[in-house]
Amino acid sequence: MNPVNYLYLAALLFAIGATGVLIRRNAIVVFMCIELMLNACNLAFVAFSRLHGNLDGQIIAFFTMVVAAAEVVVGLAIIVSLFRSRHSASVDDASLMKL
């Protein structure tokens, strides 16, 4: 098997995650889908690291994890405060910016 299959898997997971972001209304699930997309990217980075034979790809994946952790913290905080004020975690309910 050619390790390039890892890249195809990453692409597939990324597309699934993106579709999930678009079709789910629950903000938490949307967030999870974003995490899925990030993980797909990480898998691609790791595979690329193997392709190139150096560790830079893994470093980038590592940084991605750190940033994702920070993002999760803030994002979940936003969801919690949104839920507090609107009693709903649906992203469609936060549609105040239309006419």
């Binding site: 678009l22 079709i23 469609d92 936060a94 549609s95 006419l99």
Partner: peptide, 17 residues
Amino acid sequence: LRKLQNGYARSYAVSMF
């Protein structure tokens, strides 16, 4: 065109994507 601006973040996300 105004109808494109429906206020739903998911719609905008589709456009972006």
